[in-house]
Design a protein around this nucleic acid. Structure first.
Lengths: 149, 149
DNA sequence: TAGATTACTTGCATATTGCAAGTTAATATG
DNA sequence: CATATTAACTTGCAATATGCAAGTAATCTA
């Protein structure tokens, strides 16, 4: 039984999600990987929201313990670790997309305005878009750049 | 400019969502209203995850400031306040449903197992289900009971 | 082999959380 | 009408989490 499971408040499905990624940082790491193709600690650190080094380290650990991320060594540079998304993590793409859609609707200054075609596709068919995005992420491709107008 | 907007880390749509409801409590309040038809402070307090009174009060305030909930007086009992979901809050139903779907898949002990028909409907067509659930929530109906087998 | 670079860890001040108890206003009871 | 309950908080305080700056170990680079 993992640390998370021991402290689980309930097995309500909403709560389970909150226990796994319900904080102000975890989904930003997934965003960085999925939308922007980032894969190393140093790349995450550069995110505009400004991770503290200790917070980033703890969140990476949490996500690995949750089975959402996995860590491996960079073959070409032994100093680097590569973080990638597991199948369980890839299944969060539809969740993230729904959040994007909601924010695009309600944040007047949303950066989502830079990717109107992507927002439109999410709105039309989140599931099938998620499926194709999943394959791109598996290949290590960033997806935002494909939709910048 | 609200407190939240002043402290906004970025206008990335993923981040905007996290700023609004990215903690371990906010979505539980929405769950209580949407799935269980709760509407008062005292009802939220009884949730199995165990809100502290101060945390519940602060989260209700945050959600009102975020435009997701609204507060009104109970006509029949002047001691009670009624919390209800705004249109902006109702638009979070698809987000919550995707979380439910993900948790149903990965939490072996998920309570989602008690509502397999609902999970199936989310999987088939989140959007159209969300639309009909939205109307039920507006009428103050709880939805979980409809799907308990 | 001296200097970067990467991925952390550590220390410490501040902020947030969680638990218990107290407060205020409205309603129910005798 | 006086008293007890109830509802929705607020307050105090200890414990935990966060944020910033600095430090460290392993690996590359010149």
């Amino acid at each position: 039984m993992t640390k998370k499971e021991k402290g689980m408040r309930s097995h309500c499905p909403v709560n389970y999600g909150l226990e796994m990624f319900g904080d102000r940082w975890a989904l930003l790491i997934l965003r960085d990987i999925i939308f922007r193709g980032k894969r190393t600690y140093g790349e995450f650190l550069k995110s505009e929201e400004g991770f503290s080094t200790n917070i980033l380290a703890s969140r990476l650990e949490n996500l690995i313990n949750a089975g959402i991320l996995q860590r491996s060594k960079d073959k070409d540079d032994g100093r680097k670790d590569i973080y990638s998304v597991t199948e369980k993590g890839l299944d969060l793409i539809p969740v993230i997309f729904e959040i994007v859609l909601w924010s695009a609707k309600y944040d007047a200054e949303s950066q989502a305005k830079r990717i109107p075609r992507l927002v439109e596709l999410i709105d039309k068919d989140n599931r099938s878009l998620s499926k194709s995005v999943r394959e791109k992420v598996k290949r290590g491709e960033a997806i935002v750049k494909d939709y910048l107008d």
